[in-house]
Amino acid sequence: MAKLTVGKTVEGLGEYLHDQRRQAQMSLRQLAEKAEVSNPYLSQIERGLRRPSAEVLQQIAKALRISAESLYVRAGILDLDESGARMVEDAIALDPRLTERQKTALLDIYRSFVGSDVVRNEELADVVTEANQEEA
């Protein structure tokens, strides 16, 4: 039963990445190049055939300009409760109607209202490190 859950998690991650890539108006090849992963490997991730490491997810998130945490949730590395605010940040970052300056200002304001604490960031770093060690 756990295998089925992992499979659905990887498929969901792949669909989410595909949607994010299309919203960013990037080809598979462009994203692979920006994320510094191979084109076939990225294709396999999008099709739900491969489960990427936390490090690869971080590279993909950076290339798509979304939070790595949202990908970690989709991959089953983090619980949804730990990243609720990140979904709002992703929405702001992906809104094509906003300039970069407006996005930065909105993110700063949002973070000041919800409060970003250092402890949460340290916990996230620990989770990512642990996930990377499991992949190795």
Rank of each mutant, 00 (worst) to 15 (best):
V56E: 10
Y110Q: 02
N132F: 03
A54M: 05
R101N: 09
E135N: 15
R50D: 09
E134M: 15
K34V: 06
L64H: 04
E36W: 00
A85L: 04
L94A: 13
Y16M: 10
S70I: 08
A136G: 13
D117E: 14
R65K: 09
F113P: 02
A35W: 04
Y110M: 08
G76W: 00
A24V: 02
Q44M: 11
G14R: 00
A61H: 02
L124Q: 08
I66H: 00
R51H: 13
D90G: 05
A105Q: 14
L13S: 04
L49T: 12
I109P: 00
L4Q: 13
A91P: 03
G76L: 08
A63N: 06
Y110G: 08
S43K: 12
A35I: 05
L78W: 00
I92H: 06
G12T: 03
R21S: 06
L106M: 15
Q25M: 09
V119S: 14
S53N: 05
G7W: 02
S83R: 01
A54S: 13
R51I: 12
Q25G: 11
E122L: 11
Q23G: 14
P52K: 09
E123L: 13
L80R: 13
L71P: 06
K3C: 05
E89R: 12
L94D: 03
R22P: 03
I92E: 07
V56N: 02
G76R: 02
I66T: 14
Y41W: 15
E134A: 14
E33H: 11
G115R: 11
L98E: 01
Y110W: 03
G76S: 09
R47A: 14
R86S: 13
E55V: 10
G7P: 00
V73W: 03
D81Q: 10
R111L: 06
A32G: 13
G12M: 08
D81G: 14
E134Q: 15
L98P: 02
R101V: 14
F113A: 12
L107W: 04
N121K: 15
G115Y: 07
I60C: 04
S116E: 09
N39W: 06
Q30K: 08
K8E: 14
I66K: 06
V127R: 11
V10A: 01
R111C: 12
E82A: 09
L4N: 11
R29K: 13
M1P: 02
G48W: 00
S43C: 10
E123C: 07
I45C: 06
L31W: 01
I92D: 05
P52F: 04
D108M: 07
V73H: 02
R74E: 02
V37W: 01
G48F: 05
P52C: 07
A24Y: 00
R22M: 14
Y16W: 02
N121L: 15
G12K: 03
A32I: 07
S38W: 11
V128K: 04
Q102E: 15
N39I: 12
A35G: 04
V127N: 01
Y41K: 07
G48M: 05
A136K: 08
H18S: 12
V88N: 02
T129M: 10
A68S: 10
E11D: 10
A93P: 01
L106H: 10
G48N: 06
D81S: 15
K62G: 06
M1W: 00
R29E: 15
G14V: 08
Q44Y: 09
G115W: 04
V128A: 13
G14M: 11
N39K: 13
A136H: 08
A63M: 03
S43F: 07
G7L: 12
Q58I: 08
K62R: 11
P40V: 08
S112R: 12
T5Q: 15
